[in-house]
């Protein structure tokens, strides 16, 4: 199995003289894998995601990654003046796809996130969970093999999160995308990921494989054990 994302000895500093917010970072994410990075605020996990997205460049080291990726943002980052359909189509059009393909992708991914009946609505007319679904559809419409997710569920209430976890796993199963998600909820990471990378002070401390069958339940003692393992690593 190939690795669409490979970090080799990456360091990142925003300052001169350098103060590294990410250092000695090496990681290989497998094709079709659901990888989750967890860590406290300011540990550098967002910087890692931004480097994969091409928003930031590493100070030293190399990153092998696809030229373009889809990304879901914590704030959903939808354009409020565009309808749901136009938001999704916008991302596809920016990839210079032919118009029939833009329409086909928009319809396909809106259906996949169960929002095909809401194409004419504006983001402000939707709930937080629905907006995040639009964000997912938009990221998928780019047709990249990699989907990045920047704490996509952190602003949502737990009940909505449960629903979205199930939907996201279904989408992942259908699209076979490689997903890299960042989160500061250990339970979320264990619910969703194949492997969880634990970051602390800009370093990747440990990678914990989650070998539990899906769907995963928080009531499962093995689930609790995995969460405890991650928590111990971070303390």
């Amino acid at each position: 199995m190939g690795s669409p994302i490979v970090f080799t000895d990456v360091k990142k500093s925003y300052e001169s003289p350098p103060v590294f917010v990410v250092h000695d970072f090496s990681l290989s994410v497998n094709q079709g894998e659901f990888f989750c990075l967890v860590g406290a605020s300011g540990c550098g996990k967002s910087t890692v995601l931004k480097m994969i997205a091409g928003i930031e460049t590493p100070s030293t080291g190399t990153i092998a990654k696809p030229d373009h990726v889809g990304m879901v943002f914590q704030s959903n980052a939808l354009l409020p003046w565009l309808t749901v359909e136009a938001n999704v189509a916008f991302a596809a059009r920016m990839q210079k796809f032919e118009e029939p393909k833009v329409k086909q992708l928009t319809a396909k991914y809106l259906k996949m996130v169960h929002l095909d009946a809401f194409g004419g609505k504006y983001p402000r007319e939707l709930s937080g969970g629905m907006r995040q679904r639009v964000g997912i559809a938009r990221a998928l419409a780019v047709e990249s093999e990699v989907l990045l997710m920047d704490e996509p569920f952190s602003a949502l209430d737990p009940m909505i999160c449960e629903e979205l976890y199930a939907d996201l796993l279904e989408i992942w199963g259908l699209t076979k995308k490689t997903i890299v998600m960042i989160s500061h909820h250990y339970e979320e990471a264990v619910t969703l990921a194949d492997r969880v990378g634990i970051m602390k002070d800009g370093e990747l401390k440990q990678i914990v494989p989650i070998d539990l069958p899906r769907p995963r339940s928080e009531d499962d003692p093995a689930f609790t054990q995995q969460v405890k393992k991650i928590r111990t690593c971070l303390v």
């Binding site: 091409g54 928003i55 943002f73 980052a77 003046w81 990839q95």
Partner: peptide, 26 residues
């Protein structure tokens, strides 16, 4: 203009005049 919107523009390949017309101006 939120940072996430600026980041989304980079990720979705919206640059130059397209960024001006479709993001900055609105």
């Amino acid at each position: 203009i939120p940072d996430d919107i600026k980041s989304a523009a980079i990720v979705f390949n919206v640059t130059g005049l397209e960024k001006f017309w479709y993001i900055t101006l609105p």
